[in-house]
Simulated scan of single mutants.
Amino acid sequence: MNLKKYCYRLSKGKLVMFTFLIILFIGSIIFVNNNDRFYNRSIVEVTSIAQVDEREVVDQRQNRDIVFRQYLTGVVKNGPFKGQSIQLSNEYSQSRAYHPELSVGHAVFVGIEEQENGALFGEITEIKRDQVLVLVGWLFIFTLLIVGRKQGLFAIISLVLNTVIIVYTIHQFAATANAELLLLMSFAVVVITILSIFFVSGFHVRTYAAILSTLIGTFALLGIAIAVLELTGEQGLRFEEMAFLSRPPHAIFMAGVLIGALGAVMDIGVSMASSLFALYEQNNQISVKALIESGREIGKDIMGTMTNILFFAYVSGTIPSLLLYFLNGAPLGFTLSMNLSLEITRALAGSIGIVLTIPIGLVTTILMIEWKRRKL
Rank of each mutant, 00 (worst) to 15 (best):
A119K: 08
G148V: 11
V58F: 03
V132R: 06
R69Q: 12
H106I: 03
Y71H: 14
V32Q: 13
R64H: 12
V147M: 08
P100E: 11
I26C: 13
G118S: 06
Q60I: 05
E126R: 10
V108M: 07
V147P: 03
V132G: 05
S95K: 05
K128D: 11
R61N: 09
Q51D: 15
E113Y: 07
L24D: 01
G79Q: 10
T73K: 13
L135T: 03
G111K: 14
E126S: 14
N117V: 04
L139A: 11
Q115S: 09
E126A: 08
D36E: 15
P100F: 13
F31T: 11
Y98E: 08
I112P: 05
Q94P: 01
T143D: 00
Q62R: 01
V67H: 02
G118A: 06
V16G: 10
N78A: 03
S28N: 13
Q62S: 10
H99V: 10
K128S: 04
Y98K: 14
S95R: 03
R96S: 09
I29R: 07
V58Q: 02
I146Q: 00
K77C: 11
I29C: 08
A50F: 10
H99Y: 14
V75T: 15
M17E: 03
N90R: 09
F18M: 13
E56A: 11
P100I: 12
S103V: 14
D36K: 06
V16M: 14
L21N: 07
L133G: 00
N35A: 15
L15S: 13
L145H: 06
Y39F: 15
I66A: 04
Q84T: 05
S48I: 05
